[in-house]
Design a protein around this nucleic acid. Structure first.
Lengths: 195, 195
DNA sequence: GTCTATAAACGGATAGAC
DNA sequence: GTCTATCCGTTTATAGAC
């Protein structure tokens, strides 16, 4: 996923650059000073909009979540499930190579974030896992994916695979590892596949 | 995986507590002061052993890697592959609930670590992926796991699943998600399974 | 080897001018 | 709204006594 254009209001630019920095370096890996330099303002201006760093984190996370949700809701539900899964992987692989999912990053920063942020992260995970559950059950019906015993558990694992694959993709500097995930799923597709 | 007992030499205690702190909070989430308090020395003593934080990171990572490798080498190769996979998952789930894999954590901290650390992380990933590749191919032979088209790619995905599942397990405060991963694999086992 | 003391830069955060 | 100036604790790191 790509960062929004940074040509909006100061507030919007702050949020956009905060998302980028968190996805690159994590919550403890950037400062108001870093962020201010990226936006082209002074740190006091950031404190004007977001008195505490946690306030900034909450807004950056909520914005990221809703933009991500728009993207997955934009995936045409009339497509075969396997094709929707491909789109999802393309979405993940399409982001900058030096950035991972903001929520995967913040899950790693679990010890450093507030309970409010933790709850928002859980919500993000659940939304994606629910969407993937539907893909898996639809795939069993339309024949594009092999039926599985427990679609919810499979979806949890699948989402974990994507998050892990994003970290590995950056570590090895290749988007291949994201597509390994879908290739694995699809290599198990029913013989009577309808693509 | 559990941290080593912290009753060794000062140097050993520093390394052990550094591993714990990194697994809890990440590389940018702890300071020499935190570490010194845990060990019961002053920060200058830590600088005596590890002048730069990167020196400490390298040693903590190498120690973690070799201890982890001992653990996976300790999994009896005469066991059916599926049983070995169970052991692997138990090893991951057996660690403290507030800690994830040190290398998953540092993969998230990718932007903050030196090239030397990045290379060591890649090596860690490859070792585990290679071990899992062997489990998958053995599983196809002994019938305890379903054969797959590309065992190497499947192993990469499987390792990513475990890393992602560790993050999710901590986020949701339940080890269940680690066992989801093996349950998914084993639910695809061949009908003629030999366990 | 471990300590005290200190340097110098950085961290989040605030007050008040414009 | 954005700035300058500043507070004050923290951070990594070093010098030198014991």
């Amino acid at each position: 996923m790509n960062a929004p254009v940074s040509t909006g209001s100061t507030r919007e630019q702050i949020v956009a650059h905060a998302q980028t920095l968190i996805r690159q370096r994590g919550y403890n890996g950037f400062s108001y000073r870093d962020l201010a330099e990226h936006v082209g303002v002074k740190t006091a201006s950031i404190h004007y909009y977001f008195p505490q760093k946690d306030d900034l984190l909450i807004e950056a996370l909520n914005d990221y979540s809703s933009r991500t949700m728009q993207l997955i809701n934009g995936i045409d539900e009339s497509l075969p499930a396997a094709a929707r899964l491909d789109r999802y992987a393309q979405m993940l692989a399409g982001g900058p190579r030096d950035q991972v999912c903001m929520c995967g990053m913040l899950a790693a920063d679990f010890a450093s974030v507030s309970d409010r942020v933790r709850a928002a992260l859980q919500a993000f995970f659940r939304v994606h896992e629910t969407w993937l559950t539907k893909v898996l059950t639809d795939g069993a019906r339309d024949g594009s994916l092999k039926p599985c015993v427990d679609p919810q558990a499979e979806a949890r694992t699948l989402f974990a695979s994507f998050q892990g694959a994003l970290l590995a993709s950056r570590l090895f500097q290749t988007p291949e590892r994201i597509f390994d995930v879908v290739a694995g799923i699809e290599s198990r597709q029913a013989a009577t596949a309808a693509r």
